[in-house]
């Protein structure tokens, strides 16, 4: 059961502000999708190895050789806000 409390917790983990009817609708949607997903419980997977990579590729490396990155102009071309060669964000209070 997806409660309002669960939606609240998950949305806070996902840093997604939800409120009012939107939160209620999402709770219902999640409930429906998870209900559908529950069909996986019918399978016995105790001895099955999980697949996180579909191809059997291993050991892909890069050599430790430097290459040029972005110029300052490129690095800030998309910046929302910048100051002193840095990306500017609201002050973080520890």
């Amino acid at each position: 059961m997806i409660t309002a409390e669960t939606v609240n917790y998950i949305s806070s983990l996902a840093r997604l502000h939800l409120e009012g009817p939107e939160a209620v609708k999402l709770a219902g949607d999640l409930e429906a999708i998870l209900h559908y997903a529950a069909k996986l419980n019918a399978l016995d997977v105790a001895s099955v190895t999980p697949t996180s990579h579909v191809l059997n590729v291993e050991n892909v490396f890069r050599d430790d050789v430097p290459a040029p990155g972005l110029t300052p102009e490129q690095a800030f071309s998309f910046a929302i806000e910048s100051q002193d060669n840095a990306y500017k964000v609201p002050r973080i209070i520890e």
């Binding site: 100051q83 002193d84 060669n85 840095a86 990306y87 500017k88 964000v89 609201p90 002050r91 973080i92």
Partner: peptide, 8 residues
């Protein structure tokens, strides 16, 4: 400036 600056 009431801000934090990120250096990557």
């Amino acid at each position: 400036h009431q801000c934090s600056l990120a250096d990557y």
